[in-house]
Design a protein around this nucleic acid. Structure first.
Lengths: 245, 245
DNA sequence: ATCGATTAACGTCAAAATTACGTTTAATAT
DNA sequence: ATATTAAACGTAATTTTGACGTTAATCGAT
């Protein structure tokens, strides 16, 4: 089946992962590198998030899912459509006339931007055609197009969203420690939290379930492992109408 | 100057206003009505939000602002881009092949949806080419295209947003009573609040300033009038990182 | 077997915020 | 004067937050 591209609409995906070792919130980026024909000059050398044109038959969500699958092999990840970007000049920087795989690119393109949350350990970043790598959001490389803006707005949305919905667990292994949860919040929000208060608050939630398991192989007091129960969360959920202007 | 339309991208605008008399959150809708050539049949009779194609030179925000200005004459209103809608079949219902002013319409169109908040009393809804009218969000008429979905998602976004940002005052006159503010929250969130607790909490905010003025012409105890100071709000603002999953 | 290093995990108290209620007050209309 | 109406005030119990210091469990080195 031949799919017809919609030339002026793309979906871009900011892929967030969390590294428990370095306690860093990371973004998956691919490298763009292009030399002039005589190899005398480097025309493009930067990083971008992944995106692609929509096909005529797709919904926006389907395009986003397809883009993620091509990059990571994963489906069924948490995704959020957070904003459309469409400034007339967003792709018209001179070097930006060249697209990732040498397709020429001179349309004005509106992009619908999504972010995905996934568990870093489930991704094999080399299992695709791209040179993909994780980069800390606090230390991003040189980014092409308007992708720095897109990533920053994704992060802003994530910051707000993680305060009111339990999406943080999308970034952690199924079994995690309380301190790991705290670390993720701290990485996303860029703040410090008091461990004792955080622990008390989190453990008090019915949807945070202590397992009969502890960390092993660490030369210190081993941590208790917990899981998040989406079922319990949804059963007990009640919207909190706290007005805090 | 001739502006070139982008055929497959539009911006749709959900316009919210609040009626202090009826204590109702309203949406501004325009009527679509079309008969067959022999007038024997009503082809279209429903309501829609306003939208229009982007022009090549415009940013998304500019398109939204233009659409609102044509409809209401107003500029500089609070606006929020909240979601893009692009299902392949979103406009292909039979009757939907006809656009509001008889332009034929058979492209697949992605629409970037905004909502606006404005003070009802500042709008003259008859000052344009459309048959525009206010409708309570709790009692919407038959809506064309996917506009019911768009309005409902706008409302969801507004519900969340008004809890953490002082956008509620965009819907009220510059001088308002505490009870009016409570009424707006109740209309948007569709809940009841305790007046004594709400009043205490709101008055305690530095950005809510009591005026040397009371309501006049009412045969009861007159209300104290207040204003909202954006300056004070922004000066004292500090992000509240309350995790409430 | 003991000790040191390391990080997990517990506990307390004061202050602040929330919740759930009843009563008083200021205006107009009769 | 008095009735009507909605505004505005008050208080006490409970819950949540914020700011702290101390104890506990494991591994590895001796």
């Amino acid at each position: 089946m031949l799919h017809k591209k919609i030339q002026n609409i793309s979906v871009d995906c900011v892929v967030f992962g969390y590294d428990t070792k370095t306690k860093s919130l990371n973004v998956l980026l691919i490298r763009r590198y292009l030399e002039s024909q005589d190899k005398a000059e480097v025309l493009v050398d930067d990083h971008v998030i992944t995106g692609y044109h929509m096909y005529e038959h797709e919904t926006l969500d389907e395009t986003a899912t397809r883009v993620l699958k091509e990059l990571t092999g994963l489906t069924n990840q948490y995704k959020k459509q957070f904003k459309a970007f469409g400034d007339p000049d967003r792709l018209t920087g001179e070097k930006d006339l060249l697209w990732i795989n040498n397709e020429k690119f001179n349309h004005r393109t509106i992009t619908i931007a999504y972010y995905f949350l996934l568990k870093t350990e489930e991704v094999d970043i080399n299992n695709n055609q791209y040179q993909a790598n994780w980069f800390p959001v606090k230390d991003l490389p040189n980014l092409g197009f308007d992708h720095e803006q897109i990533i920053m707005e994704a992060l802003e949305n994530l910051k707000t969203k993680c305060l009111s919905e339990p999406i943080i667990f999308e970034l952690l292994p199924d079994r995690f420690t309380i301190n790991e949860v705290q670390d993720v919040y701290q990485s996303i929000l860029n703040i410090e939290l008091d461990n004792r208060n955080f622990r008390r608050k989190l453990i008090s939630k019915k949807c945070i379930i202590a397992l009969d398991e502890k960390q092993t192989g660490v030369s210190k007091k081993p941590s208790q492992l917990y899981m998040f129960s989406k079922d319990v969360y949804e059963k007990l959920f009640q919207k909190n109408y706290l007005i805090s202007i």
